[in-house]
Design a protein around this nucleic acid. Sequence first.
DNA 1: CCAATTACACTCACTAGTCGGTATACTTTC
DNA 2: GAAAGTATACCGACTAGTGAGTGTAATTGG
Lengths: 199, 199
Amino acid sequence: MMRTSGKPTRERIVDAASKLFYGEGIRAVSVDAVAEKSGLTKRTLYYHFQSKDELIAAYLDGRDQPNLALFQRWFSEAEGGIDQKIRAIFQNLAEAARHPRWKGCGYLRTAAELADMPGHPAIKTGIAHKKRVEVWLASAFAAEGVRSPELLARQIILLLDGCFAVVLLNRDASYMETAGEAAATLVKSALAQTGRENR
Amino acid sequence: MMRTSGKPTRERIVDAASKLFYGEGIRAVSVDAVAEKSGLTKRTLYYHFQSKDELIAAYLDGRDQPNLALFQRWFSEAEGGIDQKIRAIFQNLAEAARHPRWKGCGYLRTAAELADMPGHPAIKTGIAHKKRVEVWLASAFAAEGVRSPELLARQIILLLDGCFAVVLLNRDASYMETAGEAAATLVKSALAQTGRENR
DNA sequence: CCAATTACACTCACTAGTCGGTATACTTTC
DNA sequence: GAAAGTATACCGACTAGTGAGTGTAATTGG
């Protein structure tokens, strides 16, 4: 083992790949660039990963858990009824999107870049991630007694990915706040159908 | 002039570029491939376009008017109140998305591929296109007496682009129908605030 | 003559992936 | 306990091919 830094080599490669792939796009970043950024040779990179595709999949795998955890934190730390907690997710997202290095959702951008390879492992990872967010949302809505929590979760996901896409295009983060209002409206509308009031 | 077909050369190039860029992605398609598909030499292509970037912009320019017209047709041909007319757009979109060659929204995919070049002419074209759809929606809502037509139009745009993004990822066109329901809910909610009922 | 087009050779930078070899450390064997 | 083997981690140099874009002389049709 010739590592000088504390992090294991594989992790260093994935870190470098994440920054580059997210920042510039998958097809725009060469394997050479990832190797250079991680301070290793390309030969070493190919010792740890069989192909660029495998590296892409590893990049997205590494974002799954942290991303979901962030949403859950924003949700649980927010005050007010569930409609306000959902809205808080969008507000936090708007703040993040105003950072100059923000470049949309890595999963959606990867799906866009690999639109002609629907079976690519990275796409499957993306589908699984979005599904996890959706299932978590549905369970939160079910706990509030919403009649069709799965349906409402899908609607929120659509607004979530919608604001990712729109803001990536026009760089106007206020659309995220608009999406948050729409989400709150949908939640309240679903709650009204249960016969109870939101706080 | 050595044209064999009726179409002017420039148009033939843009047609070929459209099919390839939309089908496989901008960065995945080479200028050589576009030249071959249009049955012309690369040298001729560069006689009509200064660069690949210019060709990309032309590709998106060509989709602006027809795309908006399609939305408008779906809207005007639908029966029922404005909430049902909006929903009809999503239903037609779902049908289109079930076609195997459907690959999402060309503008959003381009924005994803060129995320690190926010000033690119193709991105500007995309922003202008989405704005035109938004303005058209707002005018339709204003005609119905909605209190904040611009706000509602933005919310619908978010659902529209949301289902483009989501369905591109998971290839489940039923999300478009879910988006249509959400859109109808938002429209009805906005109409209720004006004090009148939907038909 | 002139605009449009072709053929095609060419540049130069970059691309994914590979070949052969090295340094270190742990394990086996006599 | 020294020698030989084995596994892990690493690298410099390379291949074979592709990328956008150009130079230039020859050709075609109005």
